[in-house]
Simulated assay, not measured.
Amino acid sequence: MTFNEVEVEILGLIEKDSRISMETIAKMVNKSEQEVEAIIRKFEELNVIVEYNSIINWRKVDGHEGVTAMIDVKVAPKRGVGFDAIAERIYRYPEVKSVYLMSGAYDLSVVIEGKSMSEVGNFVSDKLSTLDSVLSTTTHFVLKKYKHDGTIFDHGEEDKRIVVSP
């Protein structure tokens, strides 16, 4: 699909902040609010705007930290459907947050979330590894999230020490 410069600019603004007001967008792209609303409605109908999301720093919510794992999956693709069929089987699990077809040593990258490392381990051993097309998996646990989708989580404390020079 081809869109004009203003439409692409609107997409960029919404991607950066999905809570931005129609009024603000209209001022930034020099269009009326009604024109902006019509453009956004078109994007939603065409499934260009798929969903509006919030990024939550769960580490700051006691008792809700959870565990995120990135799993590299090597699969044997099926004739006629390639990787699509196995990717669809995997992304239908509620624990799965993302599935990507990758280049390199592994075919799929799967991001899952669980309440504990044990829960993630059970998902990998009981559900993911047992699928017919799955040949092998490698699981990586996220220890700390510094930046996600362009959002920096912890800016950290500035070094407030006084510089001492000889």
Results as ranks from 00 to 15, higher is better:
residue 101 L to W: 05
residue 31 K to Y: 15
residue 69 A to Q: 05
residue 50 V to A: 15
residue 118 S to M: 04
residue 148 H to T: 03
residue 12 G to T: 01
residue 34 Q to I: 03
residue 17 D to R: 05
residue 113 E to T: 01
residue 65 E to W: 08
residue 95 E to G: 00
residue 50 V to Y: 15
residue 16 K to I: 02
residue 137 T to C: 10
residue 147 K to S: 02
residue 79 R to K: 13
residue 107 D to L: 07
residue 44 E to H: 13
residue 119 E to M: 02
residue 102 M to G: 02
residue 86 I to Q: 05
residue 124 V to E: 11
residue 112 I to N: 00
residue 41 R to S: 14
residue 108 L to C: 07
residue 113 E to M: 04
residue 51 E to V: 12
residue 26 A to H: 03
residue 43 F to Q: 12
residue 125 S to Y: 10
residue 23 E to N: 07
residue 66 G to K: 10
residue 80 G to F: 11
residue 95 E to W: 02
residue 45 E to N: 11
residue 57 N to C: 06
residue 120 V to G: 02
residue 144 K to C: 00
residue 57 N to Q: 08
residue 18 S to T: 03
residue 67 V to D: 08
residue 163 V to G: 01
residue 98 S to M: 11
residue 157 E to G: 00
residue 16 K to P: 03
residue 59 R to Y: 13
residue 51 E to D: 15
residue 64 H to P: 00
residue 29 V to L: 08
residue 120 V to F: 05
residue 120 V to T: 05
residue 35 E to K: 06
residue 154 D to I: 01
residue 75 V to I: 15
residue 161 R to A: 00
residue 47 N to M: 09
residue 34 Q to E: 11
residue 81 V to W: 10
residue 110 V to N: 07
residue 87 A to D: 03
residue 93 Y to C: 01
residue 54 S to H: 15
residue 73 V to G: 09
residue 95 E to Q: 12
residue 27 K to S: 10
residue 138 T to L: 14
residue 66 G to T: 03
residue 77 P to E: 10
residue 104 G to C: 05
residue 110 V to D: 10
residue 24 T to I: 10
residue 51 E to P: 08
residue 64 H to G: 06
residue 66 G to N: 11
residue 52 Y to L: 14
residue 31 K to H: 08
residue 121 G to M: 08
residue 138 T to Q: 14
residue 65 E to Q: 12
residue 134 V to G: 10
residue 96 V to H: 05
residue 96 V to R: 04
residue 47 N to S: 13
residue 90 I to P: 04
residue 45 E to S: 10
residue 27 K to R: 12
residue 119 E to A: 06
residue 4 N to R: 01
residue 39 I to G: 09
residue 81 V to K: 12
residue 164 V to I: 05
residue 43 F to R: 08
residue 6 V to A: 02
residue 147 K to N: 12
